[in-house]
Structure formats: structure tokens, C-alpha cells
Write a protein that binds this DNA or RNA. Structure first.
Lengths: 339, 339
DNA sequence: CTGAAAGCGCTTACAG
DNA sequence: CTGAAAGCGCTTACAG
């Protein structure tokens, strides 16, 4: 394992000239010298020692990928396909630029701050914020470049990228209304806790209002979590005298649960009930009927977040920005026309 | 940010005594000194500088989580829920022991070797080996602790943990035979390329042979990939005059595809065809009918792999071991009894 | 049980 | 354009 010192000796230059070649400080070394050094570097398959570089420069080129732990007993968020996909794209982006992704599941901001010091981490991306208090706390106490996904706080200077959730909710409801539905429900986890869900719900309300369609509170299934929650909501719908003809779920897994419970009772989707999901995740194409859903471009989201982080790492004045990515309705087979 | 030096000055001891306290070298420091140092450490919220530690000790406590890139155009393997889950559990295991997970998608072993040198990585875990040539190459050239999941080469000294695939294939076929099926098919990707698929297929053959059931080559759907492949296989089954009454898929996604294509043609599962999948992944509980599948304990797999890695990191003689985890049939609703 | 010294492999000002 | 020196914050033998 050749070191800079050995390379320098063989090339007959100083250690710092080799360092300048490696770090592409073109202006600081003549083309001839650079070529000679580079040749020797390659001959020895020189590999940079990042620990040494980090120690002297205080920058590690490590980017922390933060995954909050939602429940006490669960492993990390990577169980969620959306998170896995995001992390995959982020890793690809970082690798292409010689940055190194380190993942961390955490429950409180101290764990994050400690990791940052431990490794002199250059920047972090918060992938699936769950708890608003923890996220808020982290944003407030992070004196380093941090990009937050899917969450934004007006009262803080922060970098965030999200999607137009409100428009997503609107598009879903608008689609159902256009097809003649007037009795439309909404199912999601604790609508009043997360701004993302709130926005989706708000968009749904916007469309209803615009179309002067009624909203029956009994059709709002608040506190619906994941597949099991969806199944429960589906059962309740079947028991209702005054049931909705369509329901929008705040995530695909909930929509899948609703569809499953209807099918298990012998009902067919979309004949009995039209269902629209959110996220266009893997399951939406797996089930039958394929799920109509509000989709987002996850790769674009990852690239946008990483680009913002890179800008923040070079420009210390760049600490407040918000990108809102567009969203589109992906029509598949879980919705029908009402006469 | 306090350093060891400052702590040492305040405690009135040498730098190396502080280092010994931090590194739990109990025997090398008196209880009284240790208590005093520890108190000052906590007062200053001392956080270890891993770059400095790595530089001087040549060990980083970083564990590389390797994710091969299967296709040119895809992002990393984290798109696969199985990989995401595994990485999540591994991260949890490592974090609990103060090790740091760095993820790397790669196409060839050079990228891995370079990363190892770059960060003096202590050990690696290969999560979803795909290409046998690359994996073989990596195992051969890794002079460092490496644990490979789901793959084993008799001709090499290596550490691996997999599941009893052959028994899995056997259990699936046995279950169908017990329910009266005699016409059973098998669908999987290139059966003769991956040992995992080969083993599952072999177990399937074992059961057929034992029961003296016939095997029609037309019922073996070789080269079936993911959901799209499953859908194609489903369509072909529907067109057959001499169709099987049941089919075993080498992974859940394929089984889901088969079921979807039947349902789209108006047929019902398991009435028209019984289907068994492999892996007990998220989708298997999402679809209707819920998928009967061969399940494995992913958390146990992650913990086993990580434990083996830790042993290898402390014991340089431990370089050859193979753990085969048991497998079980998870009965759900995609299989019926034949009269 | 404790310490002084050397060194890990780089980068960072500072000179020239 | 090039270099000599100091230093980043630890751990590692080696002494005592």
C-alpha cells in the first residue's frame, strides 16, 4: 500500500505536490509534473487514505443517511420499499462523486450529532422523518448541511425537498369526481399529526369543495396505519349503510389493505368500491386490480436532495431552500366510472 | 470538541491513560483514575475521533455492506425489499456494538477492494450476490473478513450463511402432493445458473421422485424473472392443454405475477391453479389470496452473518464456515386441495 | 498501574 | 509552480 510519501520520493517531488495532483489542484502543479506523478500513482494503484485526509482536513466526504426509528421494536426504515429505493438512488449519486454513504437509524438527535462528530461527517440527508418533534429538534441543532425529505417547517431555516402533496390529494379526488363519484372517503394515519398527510387530505377537501360534493365525516378513516389499518377500514366500509363509492388512501399499503379486505368478503374492486393510493410503490403494480395511485419520481427526489446537500457543503450561506416536486396520477384498474 | 489531550490535562494523567479508559482496557488503569477520567469525559461530552483512531490503529470499525448491481441501468439492490430488510437488521446489529455501516453498490471486486483500503474497513458482508463470477472473484481476492449471504463455493475457504433451499423446495412440493396434486410445475430464473435456484428446484424434484409423481418438462418455466416473468408463465399455463394444477415459484414476485395474470383473465387462485412462492416477502401478505410461501427468518440471517463477521474480525484463523438456516412452509390461501 | 515518545498518512498555511 | 514544517487526534510498543 503505497503512501503519498513513497510516490513523492519516486517522482522526485515533494509530498505536497503529490497531494495537489490527487486533489486536482491543477493550478498548483505543472502539467509535466502532474503527468509524471499520475503515472506513478497508477502504477502503484495508489488508494487514498481517507482517515488521514479526514484527520488533517476535518472533512471526511462521508454523507450520513438518516433513518428514524418509528416504533420501539422495529428495525430500521429500510423495511419500507420507498426508503430502500431512496437510499439506493442516494448511494448511487454519492458513489459517482466519490462520497461515502454511512447509514444511521436513530431515535433522537443526539445520536446523529454524535455520529457527525465521530466521523467529521460533511452532510446528512434525513430520509423518512416521522416524529415531528425529533425532526424539528434535529434541524434546529444541526450546524452542518442537512437536507430533510418530505417535511418542512416554516419557522426554521432548513433545506428540504418534498412533493406537492396537496396537489396529489386534489388530483386523486378530481379524478374520482370526474368519473361521477360524489361519495368519496379518505383513509390515512393521524391526519392532524403529519403535514404530509394533512396536505394530501387538504387537497382532497379542495376538490370536494370545488365540485360541491358532500363530505361525510364517517368516510374519513383517521388513524389508519399500513395494511392492517386498511383492512380494518375496508371492513368498516362494508358494514356502512351509507358507504362511500370511492376512497383515497394516503399510502399504497393502506389502499392494498382496503382492497384485500373487500376481496376476502367476496366483493370486487372497483365494482364495489373505487380505490386510489399514494406513492406508486412496488405493491401497486403487484396486486390485482393494479392500483391507481398518485406517483412521484423517487430518483428525481434523491438527486434533488443530494444536489442541494452538495451545494450546502460548498456554500455556507445556502441554508434555507425548499423544493416541491410535481406529482402525477397514475391510472390503473382500481377505479371505475359511476353512472 | 474536547480531545483526549485536553481531558488528560484536566484529569492530571497522561494521554494514554485516557485512551485506555476509553478503550476499556480495564487492567491497565486503576479504578480511581478511571472514575475520575470518566467523569471528565462525560462532563465534556467527549466524542471519539474515529479518523484519528483509524489512522493510528489501522482499524476503522467500519463494516462494508456490499450490494452488487445486477443490471446496468438499475440503482442498487435496495429496491428489493429483502435486501432492504437485511440491511436494516445488519445496521441495527452493528450500531448496537459501535460499528459503522457503509454501503457500497458495486459491479466488480476492484471497487470493493479499493473501498476497503480507502477506509481501512474491518470487514464486509455481501448481501445479495448475483453474478457468480464476480462473487467468486471477490471471495478469492478478499484477504479481509467477509461473510457471503446465500451463496457457497465448495472450492474456496469462505464464510457464508444461507438457508436450506433444497428443503424449501421439497417442503413446497411435498405440501402440494399431500393435498392431492400430481401435476406440479416450477418457475424460476435460469435454473442452471444460480445454486440457490438450483437447490430449490432439486428439492422440488426430490419430492416428486419420492411420490412417484410425473414431471412434464413443459411445466418447468425456466428463465422466469420477477413479476413480468411470472405473468408470462401464467399466460402460458392458461394456454396449455395439459396444464399443471399447481406451480412452485422460486420467489414471491414470480408467484405474484402468475396469480395476477390468471386473475386478469378472470380465473381464480387457487381454484384454477395452486401457487406457492419463496421468501415470505412483504407482497406475499399484500395480495389476495394471501400467498402460501417458503419463509425464512431474515433477522436471524442478519444476526448470524454479523456474528460470524465479528468472530472473523477477532480470530484470523476463522475463515471457513457455513451456516444453513432452516426454512418453513407458511400456509396461506393460494393453495387448494385436489380431489 | 502510568508515562514520554514516535508515528499513522495526509492537508494546511506559509515561504519562496 | 514547488517545498519544508507543523499538526490533525489518536494508538502502539517500550520503559519503568
Amino acid at each position: 500500500m503505497a503512501t503519498i510519501k513513497e510516490i513523492a520520493a519516486e517522482a522526485g517531488v515533494s509530498v505536497m505536490t503529490v497531494s495537489n495532483v490527487i486533489n486536482q489542484n491543477r493550478s498548483r502543479v505543472s502539467p509535466a509534473t502532474e503527468a509524471r506523478v499520475r503515472e506513478i500513482l497508477e502504477k502503484h494503484h495508489y488508494v487514498r487514505n481517507m482517515a488521514a485526509r479526514t484527520l488533517s482536513s476535518k472533512s471526511s466526504r462521508i454523507v450520513g443517511l438518516l433513518l428514524p426509528i418509528w416504533y420501539e421494536d422495529s428495525a430500521s426504515m429500510l423495511l419500507d420499499p420507498y426508503a430502500g429505493q431512496l437510499v439506493g438512488y442516494l448511494e448511487e449519486f454519492l458513489r459517482a462523486r466519490q462520497y461515502y454513504p454511512m447509514i444511521l437509524s436513530f431515535k433522537n438527535s443526539d445520536q446523529v450529532l454524535t455520529l457527525r462528530k465521530t466521523w467529521q461527517i460533511d452532510g446528512m440527508i434525513l430520509v423518512m422523518p416521522h416524529n415531528d418533534a425529533v425532526t424539528h429538534d434535529l434541524v434546529e441543532n444541526s450546524a452542518f448541511p442537512l437536507v430533510v425529505l418530505d417535511r418542512f417547517y416554516d419557522d426554521l431555516d432548513m433545506l428540504s425537498v418534498g412533493i406537492n402533496d396537496r396537489r396529489g390529494g386534489y388530483l386523486a379526488a378530481r379524478h374520482l369526481l370526474d368519473l361521477g363519484h360524489r361519495r368519496i372517503g379518505f383513509a390515512g394515519p393521524s391526519i392532524f399529526e403529519s403535514s404530509v398527510i394533512q396536505d394530501r387530505y387538504q387537497g382532497f377537501l379542495d376538490a370536494l369543495k370545488e365540485a360541491k360534493a358532500p363530505l361525510n365525516p364517517a368516510w374519513v378513516f383517521d388513524g389508519t396505519f399500513h395494511q392492517a389499518g386498511g383492512e380494518e377500514a375496508g371492513r368498516r366500509i362494508l358494514e356502512m349503510e351509507d358507504a362511500p363509492t370511492a376512497v383515497i388512501a394516503s399510502e399504497d399499503l393502506i389502499a392494498c389493505g382496503i382492497i384485500r379486505s373487500l376481496q376476502e368478503q367476496g366483493y370486487s374492486v372497483p365494482e364495489k368500491l373505487s380505490v386510489i393510493g399514494f406513492d406508486d410503490s412496488l405493491p401497486s403494480r403487484l396486486i390485482s386490480p393494479a392500483l391507481t395511485t398518485v406517483g412521484q419520481d423517487i430518483r428525481l427526489k434523491a438527486d434533488t436532495a443530494a444536489s442541494m446537500l452538495f451545494q450546502a457543503m460548498t456554500d455556507s450561506a445556502y441554508r434555507k431552500d425548499r423544493r416541491v416536486l410535481e406529482v402525477r396520477l397514475i391510472q390503473r384498474d382500481s377505479v371505475r366510472k359511476i353512472d
